[in-house]
Lab assay of single mutants.
Amino acid sequence: MPSETPQAEVGPTGCPHRSGPHSAKGSLEKGSPEDKEAKEPLWIRPDAPSRCTWQLGRPASESPHHHTAPAKSPKILPDILKKIGDTPMVRINKIGKKFGLKCELLAKCEFFNAGGSVKDRISLRMIEDAERDGTLKPGDTIIEPTSGNTGIGLALAAAVRGYRCIIVMPEKMSSEKVDVLRALGAEIVRTPTNARFDSPESHVGVAWRLKNEIPNSHILDQYRNASNPLAHYDTTADEILQQCDGKLDMLVASVGTGGTITGIARKLKEKCPGCRIIGVDPEGSILAEPEELNQTEQTTYEVEGIGYDFIPTVLDRTVVDKWFKSNDEEAFTFARMLIAQEGLLCGGSAGSTVAVAVKAAQELQEGQRCVVILPDSVRNYMTKFLSDRWMLQKGFLKEEDLTEKKPWWWHLRVQELGLSAPLTVLPTITCGHTIEILREKGFDQAPVVDEAGVILGMVTLGNMLSSLLAGKVQPSDQVGKVIYKQFKQIRLTDTLGRLSHILEMDHFALVV
């Protein structure tokens, strides 16, 4: 994948999101292997301009796509893939009243899908469409860049269908997702969380590099694949309309690839034109409109599966009536509230959605109805927002919020430890010299600072030695090549209790 991002070429006709291997024109390309080798690009942008032909009021008969309808489940399912879809609609009884809503608040519980998330729908649909058009064949390999849930859905379907599955996901995604993927037989590649989507090191860039190296491999490409919004247009939206008897006044959905909100909203605009569509985008993402909503100094966020630093091709923002931004604290607070007060075992993005819903639905009156999409299960986040310690460490809970008995030293300040200034190293000294210094002084790690004293990161003896043994660096290389740029900081005025929580999850903390 090139470091400079080429513009994806656009073909003359058809839909841009065809499933299957992508040609340089962004659509299915038939021909000899030699032709494909000559024409197939190194990668295709996940934010390529959409060429979708959908228009409100256009006859369904003019759609270029294969459409399906929700099917009634048999008493005995032939395999677990038949437990994807037909998820329950559940009334939220307490939270709406707590925040003064007059309307009825309903939750579409997508964590009841077989793999635990709304992404099971698009995973199965992308595979079925690729099999139907002859792209996927027995023994082929599926590769997908994902925040985890699409990966789980694909790995689940691949396990049943017999495909090899490789999932490329950023490091910030939970260990629970990784464990589930491994249990399903998927191979996992992790990428830096802070890598831009168009960087060769991003999950998108690495996935395309693997595709170019592995024979008979395919990126189904949830960011561009029409099967993504079509899955929701054909099934999720129809289920909502049936469950609500066609009567709903507002739908609120958090947005990642945009397939969920695009597919549902398009069908609702056709069948229930008075329904307002509300999009939820986390602070630090750029999906919301108008652009002024996205202006923030924050560039990272903890909530998973929603928000991006690019506009995915499948996201149709014209069908969203209003956007709201959400933050991590309210997302996790509301997710825990949904679990504790409503018994809905949902993930953090569901918290984002409901946090926005109780604001947006203030305009609705008694007798009206708001539906929220709860995308995934708490299963993926047992060591994250479900953990009091994690919430404390991230600053989303305060010590006084917890009532468990603490040891005698818990409320003492870090400054009472009488710490001395640490050994520091410059980023320009060599790895070999740094190892000598650390061994001589008896230290395992040291902060790396520039000549102005600005902290650049941390270097550890173990990481340097393993990097040297693996051949990633040489003793003569500058130590700046092996620094940890993500590390926890703590102030002298913070409590030892807070430091204790940090050290339970990290090997060190830097006192500043």
Rank of each mutant, 00 (worst) to 15 (best):
P2E: 15
S3D: 02
E4W: 11
E4H: 15
P6I: 02
Q7R: 02
V10L: 12
V10K: 15
P12W: 09
S27M: 13
E29L: 02
K30R: 12
S32G: 06
D35T: 07
E37Q: 11
A38C: 15
K39P: 15
E40F: 12
P41R: 02
L42S: 05
P46A: 07
P46G: 02
P46V: 06
D47C: 02
S61A: 11
S63M: 02
H65T: 07
H67A: 08
P70M: 15
P74R: 15
I76L: 13
L81H: 06
K83I: 02
D86V: 12
M89L: 15
R91N: 12
N93F: 02
I95L: 02
I95H: 05
K97D: 13
K97W: 05
K98R: 05
L101V: 06
E104A: 10
L106S: 06
A107L: 02
F112Y: 06
A114T: 15
S123V: 02
A130R: 08
A130S: 08
D133C: 07
G134M: 15
D140S: 09
T141S: 09
E144S: 06
P145T: 07
S147P: 04
S147L: 02
N149I: 09
T150N: 02
G151A: 02
G151M: 02
L154S: 06
A157F: 02
A158C: 02
V160F: 02
R161G: 10
E176L: 08
E176V: 02
R182S: 08
A183G: 14
A183I: 02
G185M: 12
A186I: 05
A186V: 07
I188Y: 02
V189F: 02
R190H: 08
T191F: 02
N194K: 14
A195Q: 10
S199M: 02
H203C: 06
K211V: 15
I214K: 02
S227I: 07
A231Y: 06
T235Y: 12
L241R: 02
Q242A: 05
M250R: 05
M250V: 05
L251P: 02
S254E: 02
V255C: 11
V255Y: 02
G259Y: 06
G259L: 02
T260I: 08
I261K: 02
K267H: 08
K269A: 11
E270C: 02
G274V: 02
G274E: 02
R276N: 13
